[in-house]
């Protein structure tokens, strides 16, 4: 498996990052029409780096992740363009057999709702052990020992006694830890966490995020953290990609974006976080509704909701303008936005 991947891909050695999503397009062909879920998404993640992908439901953040994993339902999903390079070779061009071996070994994923994502009829230890048995050919007893070690590592109390318990016998936080244990079992280089804390209560959220950050530090993996919760990402992420209507509308190092966002949508998101010092005032909300993927607005997808809207926003799709260094904003008037946020 490693031999195959270390060969340079057809044109894949340019960027050099561990995982590069390059101009990815994904659409869903439904009876109601073609839903353009992902429209030219580009991002990179390196070893030891945390990328937070931020966006509301339907922004294409999960679809991008599923395409990277190769677990997109096709049909109705269809990849209409772009590349996903992992260690330089394009995953989308690999035969299914090699693709499968990368799942779990190279790139692995934590899902949102661990209760439904874990198989209800098998013990959790068995499900973790399956990784070692199927990928590494480990014996049942060896694999089970490793499963207990992993459960210890994600700090499940009494791991040894709970290895034969079933998913429904655990609390939500513990279930998510098991999901994480399963995902990191084979020391993947990239871990994708798709809203890992959405289904959990706030104190448990913090614990899970702490655990993810710690595991990432220990093993130097690249982490893609998909979320719609700005509060979650501030502490752990290195950089942020904000998605809207299947596009990245802003990408920036995490502190730059928090300090002064360069896109009206990210600005709106930041302003809609409740703050103690603004207690008593009405909480800001971005007006309007998310775009209909079957019938995207012309020009900039955000224009119907944008306070900075001008005439050309309705007609011209804004490119991802370079703001500075690695920062980009897909807004015609990003300078104005950034000035407003700085003041």
């Amino acid at each position: 498996m490693v031999e195959v991947l270390s060969e340079p891909g057809s044109r894949g050695t340019t960027g050099g990052a561990l995982l590069e999503v390059d101009n990815l397009h994904v659409e869903f062909r439904t009876r109601a029409g073609v839903a353009k879920a992902v429209n030219g998404v580009t991002y990179t993640v390196d070893a030891g780096e945390t990328l937070a992908v931020l966006g509301e439901s339907g922004s294409g953040k999960s679809v991008t992740a599923q395409t990277i994993m190769g677990i997109l339902d096709m049909p109705p999903g269809k990849i209409t363009g772009g590349e996903i390079r992992f260690r330089g070779s394009d995953l989308l061009k690999l035969p299914e057999d090699q693709r499968r071996k990368i799942r779990g070994e190279g790139i692995s994923m934590v899902f949102q709702d661990a209760l439904s994502a874990l198989n209800p009829v098998f013990p959790v230890g068995w499900q973790i052990a399956e990784m070692f048995r199927m990928h590494r050919g480990a014996s049942r007893s060896d694999a089970k020992k490793k499963a207990v070690e992993l459960m210890d590592r994600v700090r499940i109390p009494g791991a040894k006694d709970r290895v034969n318990d079933f998913p429904h016998q655990f609390s939500g936080g513990m279930r998510q830890r098991i999901m994480i244990a399963m995902a990191i079992a084979l020391d993947p280089e990239i871990l994708i966490a798709d809203e890992p804390t959405t289904a959990l209560d706030v104190t448990v959220q913090a614990q899970i995020m702490g655990l993810l950050a710690e595991l990432q530090r220990d093993s130097n993996m690249g982490l893609i953290l998909i979320t719609h919760d700005l509060g979650v990402v501030a502490d752990v992420a290195d950089k942020i990609a904000v998605m809207y209507g299947g596009r990245i509308v802003e990408n920036a190092p995490v502190h730059d974006l928090y300090r002064n966002p360069a896109h009206p949508y990210s600005k709106g998101l930041l302003e809609s976080i409740p703050r103690v010092d603004l207690k008593g005032q009405e909480l800001y909300a971005i007006k309007g509704t998310p775009p209909n993927l079957l019938d995207m607005p012309t020009g900039c997808a955000f224009h119907p909701r944008c306070p900075y809207k001008r005439d050309n926003c309705v007609t011209d799709v804004p490119p991802l303008n370079t703001v500075s260094g690695t920062r980009g904003s897909a807004c015609h008037y990003w300078r104005e936005v950034i000035d407003d946020s700085a003041s």
């Binding site: 994993m69 677990i71 499968r100 799942r103 439904s116 209800p120 098998f122 990784m131």
Partner: peptide, 24 residues
């Protein structure tokens, strides 16, 4: 969801269907 998880674990199609899907 658990079938999707099984695929994401890198299991063969045969195992996903024959063990995870069928058992349920």
């Amino acid at each position: 969801d658990y079938v999707r998880t099984a695929v994401a674990k890198g299991l063969t199609n045969r195992r996903v269907v024959g063990i995870h899907l069928l058992r349920n």
